[in-house]
Each structure stands twice: as C-alpha cells, then as structure tokens.
Design a protein around this nucleic acid. Structure first.
Lengths: 157, 157
DNA sequence: GATCACCTTGACGTAAACGGAAGGGTGGTT
DNA sequence: AACCACCCTTCCGTTTACGTCAAGGTGATC
C-alpha cells in the first residue's frame, strides 16, 4: 500500500534522497559517519524519515553558504537540544551570533563580487559586440538559465 | 625617503600585506605558485606593488564567496585580457554569467541561513532568560562585534 | 662577530570532503 | 539458476589550500 507518497511519515531510501538532492550515496554515508545523520535501519539498509530529509536539507544549505560539516553538526545538535528543551549553554548562543555576523559579511562580499562580475560581463560583451557579434549569446538564454536555477530553489524551500 | 606611505606607487613586503589582510606568507607564496600573483623581485625578495595588492584583495574576496583559487585565477586573467583589449573568447563570458547565477543562489541561501540562525538565537535566548538569565550576553556586546567587523569591510572596499 | 629579524626555496604533512573499487548480501525477475 | 539492481562495509586514493619544518642567505644591531 503505497498510500500517499507525500504523507508526512513516509520514508526514503538512500537513492531517493540522492536523486532528489543531487548528491551521492557516498556523501550521505559520509555525513552519517560524521554524526550529521542517523537514519533508521531495515536490516542493513538505511531508512530515512522526513526528519532525516529535513536535516539533509539543512546540511546541504549549510554547505552552500560555506559552513564546514563540523559547524553544521553543531548547529544541528543545538536544534535537537532546543527540541529537548535543555539547551543550557550560553556559548552556543554566542557561536550562533558569530555565525550570523560572518554570514552578513559574506553576503556583503557576494554583493560586491556580483557587481564586479557584472562589470566584467559588460566589458566582455562590449568587446565581443565590436569584434565578433556572431559569438554573442542572447540575453534570453541567460534568463532561461536563471529561471531554471530559481526553480531549484523553490523546491529547496 | 619614506615620502607618503599612501602614494599610489609605494610597494609592500610580503609581511606587510600579510598583516594588512590577515594571512600568512605561505599563502601568498602559494598563490604565486598557482599563478595568481607575480610580484616583482628585489634580489630574492618579493616586492608587491599596488596592483599586486589589488589582486590579492580580489583573491581573498573571491575566497570568501566560495570560489576556488583556480576560478579566481580565470577571472583575474580575464581582467588582464580586458586590459590588453583582446578578450576574444565568448566562453569566458558564459562562465562569468554562470558564476553570477551561482552567487545569486548562494545569496539566497545565506539569507535563509541567517533567518534560521536568528530563529535559533531567539529560542535559545528565551530558554536562557527563563533558566539562567545571568548567562545572557547583552545586546550591546553583539552590536560591538558587528561594528568591528563592518569596520574591516570598510577597509576592504 | 654573534644574534636577531626577516627573507628565500624546497619538501613533506595535513584536514576536509568525499570518490571509487573491492568484496559481499538481498530481493525480484526471467 | 542466473542475472539485475539495489544495498552494505572497508579501505585506499584524491584534490584543495595551505601548515610546518629544514636549511640557508641578507642586513641591522648590540
């Protein structure tokens, strides 16, 4: 009885999650090794719950913003403590704050990098237009790529 | 004759740049090995120009936004080509565009991460306030840290 | 002239984050 | 019974970005 595939207590195989999030089984096992995931087992086989999936999402997002797996682990642990209602140490709070500041700095850097790249693009484009206009990709293509990527983001919400 | 230390053609030793940008001589030599920097020499010793310094700035900013050294190298090369006025290949332009899109995605991730961390902070803070209010850091401290970091940014402009 | 403090070039070591292949089990199908 | 298509563990390999000596050269200083 497959019931509803979206029911909140459905489970996932390692491959399913890998396909969904575009990573490899090796990576998931690695995260488990590092204590970031702890899926249930059916015999030998890993069985991932919705909660596990959510953790994986956080892990991958953390990676995208440049956090090390160890740091992601700490954050995840804190979420667990928070659930248990016994997050008694103030140092964790401080670490959170530091991370926020670091991320704000990073955001700033990204904005600058984007701006610089746009500049570079403009220059290159002008040059190309003047020399080999036939090689110029069209703006529509870029918009297309952009839409695709943002589609991915929608999913990761 | 030290003249004006800020004159645009002053030079820097490896250590000066390291102090200014908080990195190690080893790192600078490594970047040189990888072709990202090419300082002049005074005998054996490296002599960094203002241009070299600017390149280093770009390298470090690139790193902060998650670019690999190799990618940073390509970007830097393109800037050089642009100077030389002969950036004839359209593939570079495409790579630039891809990087921009990637950075926009990353920016999005960072926003989400910040939001999540703020949530975590709120929770932790409430819990602390209810149990060990004596351990609570004061908001003023956080603001202080923030101001310091943003000061660093000012410099990196 | 010995001691710093700084610079140099190798050469080897290392932590992080996996990749990949070996060797083997399980369940379903033809 | 043979063959997939998965899954597992174990172990060794790889890339990136440096850290860390080792061994030595140069100039200023006590």
């Amino acid at each position: 009885m497959p019931a509803d595939l979206r029911r909140p207590n459905r489970t996932f195989t390692i491959r399913q999650l890998c396909l969904e999030f575009k990573c490899t089984p090796r990576a998931l096992r690695f995260y488990e090794d590092k204590g970031l995931l702890a899926p249930a087992r059916d015999g030998m086989n890993r069985v991932y719950s919705y909660k596990d999936r959510a953790r994986l999402q956080l892990i991958l997002r953390g990676k995208r913003v440049g956090l090390a797996l160890a740091e992601i682990g700490e954050i995840l642990d804190l979420y667990d403590l928070d659930d248990g209602g016994a997050a008694q140490n103030a140092k964790s709070l401080q670490k959170f704050r530091e991370r926020i500041v670091a991320l704000e700095v990073q955001r700033h850097d990204i904005d600058q990098a984007i701006e610089q790249l746009r500049h570079g693009c403009d220059a290159l484009e002008k040059h190309l237009a003047a020399t080999r206009p036939d090689l110029l990709p069209r703006a529509a293509d870029y918009d297309q790529v952009l839409r695709e990527r943002l589609g991915d983001l929608e999913h990761a919400k």
